[in-house]
C-alpha cells in the first residue's frame, strides 16, 4: 500500500459520525459570583500560608530543642528530633502547596482557553532555506571536492579515540592470575573468624558449622602490626573466607581423590558462592545443605559441595584439611581451583 492510499484511507475515516458539540459555556463558581464565598476562600488560602510560617518556626524550635546522638529524646520509640523535624518541615511545605492549589482552584480564573496546534514540522520554505544553507556551507568548505582533507580529518578524529581509551588504562591492574590464588598455604591454620583462635576437630560437634578464616588474617609482625590489613585484608577476605562443618564420616561421600581432605568428619569449603560471590552461611544441619542467602543456590556439603538447587553452576571449592603438630586444623594447600563467581578465563 502506498502512502497515497494510506492518506486516502485516513481521509475516509476523518468523517465523524457525531458532530463536535464544541466547548461548554463557562459555568461560574460560587467564588466568582459571591463575594462572601470569595472572601472565605481568600481566608482559607491565607490560613494555609500562615500555618506554613508557623511550621517553619516550629522546625527551628525542634532543631534546637531535641537532642540527637547517643541518647536521643524519644517519641513513640523513635528519635524525637527526626520525627519533629520531618513533621514540621513536611507540614510547612504541604501547607504552601495546599494553599497555592486552593488559590488556583477557587480564585484564579477557570475559563478554559483553546489554543490552536501547529504541525511540529517546519514549513517547506523553511526546510528549503535550511537545506540550501547547509548545502552552501558544505560546498563552501569544499569537503566534498577535497576528499584528502575529509579522510585525514576523520582519521585524526578516530585516532583521538586511542588516547581516550589508553588514558583509562590505569583504572586498575590487569587480572593476571590474581583470581586463581588465595592466601591459603600448606600448614596455615584455620581459625575462628571472630576470635582468631585455632580449631581442633574434636572441639566441633556433629552438625556444627564454624565461620573461619586463614590464620594469617590475625597474625602480627614483630612490631605488633597486622600482617594483612586495610584493602588487602578486604580483598583476601573476599576470596579466602571458609566454613568448617563437621558431619558423621559415614554420611560423607567424597570423590576418590578427596578421601583424605577431611579430618574426623570436618570438611572445609569456600564461603564464597560460585554464582555471583555472596558469602554463604545458611546451614541446614540435618540435610548438610548450605544455602546462599542472596540467590538461594544450595550446595550439598556431604557430597563434595555439589549444587543441588538454584542458579549456581559449579560446586563449592573445597579446601583440603590436615592437622598440625599441635592437633589444630590446617590447610594442606591453597584451593585447587579458583573460588567465587565464574569468569571467562576460568576454563
Amino acid at each position: 500500500m502506498s502512502h497515497d492510499e494510506i492518506a486516502r484511507r485516513d481521509g475516509d475515516h476523518a468523517e465523524e459520525p457525531i458532530v463536535n458539540p464544541g466547548m461548554h459555556e463557562h459555568q461560574p463558581r460560587p467564588t466568582d459570583i459571591d463575594d462572601v464565598a470569595g472572601r472565605r476562600a481568600e481566608r482559607q488560602v491565607a490560613t494555609f500560608f500562615g500555618l506554613s510560617s508557623v511550621m517553619a518556626i516550629l522546625f527551628c524550635v525542634a532543631y534546637f530543642t531535641f537532642d540527637i546522638g547517643d541518647e536521643p529524646d524519644l517519641f513513640l520509640g523513635y528519635g524525637a528530633s527526626n520525627i519533629f523535624l520531618g513533621l514540621t518541615l513536611g507540614l510547612a511545605l504541604l501547607f504552601i502547596g495546599i494553599g497555592a492549589i486552593q488559590w488556583a482552584r477557587k480564585l484564579m480564573s477557570d475559563v478554559e482557553i483553546s489554543e490552536a496546534r501547529h504541525p511540529s514540522r517546519s514549513s517547506d520554505e523553511d526546510r528549503d532555506i535550511a537545506l540550501s544553507a547547509l548545502n552552501q556551507g558544505i560546498a563552501d568548505s569544499a569537503i566534498g571536492r577535497r576528499p584528502l582533507i575529509r579522510n585525514s580529518l576523520l582519521g585524526a578524529l578516530g585516532a583521538l579515540g586511542l588516547p581516550a581509551i589508553v588514558a583509562l588504562r590505569d583504572l586498575g591492574p590487569l587480572p593476571g592470575t590474581a583470581l586463581e590464588q588465595t592466601v591459603w598455604r600448606k600448614g596455615m591454620r584455620v581459625v575462628n573468624d571472630v576470635s582468631g583462635t585455632p580449631i581442633k576437630a574434636e572441639q566441633m560437634e556433629i552438625g556444627q558449622l564454624v565461620n573461619a578464616e586463614p590464620g594469617i588474617f590475625f597474625a602480627v609482625d614483630e612490631e605488633g602490626e597486622p600482617v594483612v590489613e586495610g584493602v588487602e585484608l578486604q580483598q583476601e577476605k573476599a576470596k579466602a573466607a571458609v566454613i568448617l562443618v563437621k558431619m558423621r564420616p559415614e554420611d560423607i561421600t567424597p570423590y576418590p581423590n578427596r578421601e583424605n581432605w577431611g579430618v574426623e568428619g570436618v570438611l572445609c569449603y569456600s564461603k564464597i558462592c560460585t554464582h555471583v560471590g555472596c558469602p554463604i552461611s545458611l546451614w541446614e544441619q540435618q540435610t548438610h545443605h548450605l544455602l546462599c542467602p542472596c540467590h538461594q543456590s544450595t550446595f550439598d556439603l556431604a557430597d563434595n559441595g555439589k549444587v543441588i538447587f538454584g542458579p549456581a553452576a559449579r560446586a563449592l571449592p573445597q579446601l583440603p584439611l590436615m592437622v598440625d603438630d599441635e592437633g589444630y586444623l590446617v590447610a594442606q594447600s591453597d584451593f585447587p581451583e579458583p573460588v567465587g563467581p565464574s569468569y571467562w578465563e576460568r576454563g
Binding site: 520531618g86 513536611g90 510547612a92 504552601i96
Partner: peptide
C-alpha cells in the same frame, strides 16, 4: 503548589 506537596510528603516520609 504541587512541588511543595511532593516535597512536603517526602519530608513527612523522611520524618
Amino acid at each position: 503548589g504541587f512541588f511543595f506537596i511532593v516535597f512536603g510528603v517526602t519530608a513527612l516520609m523522611g520524618g
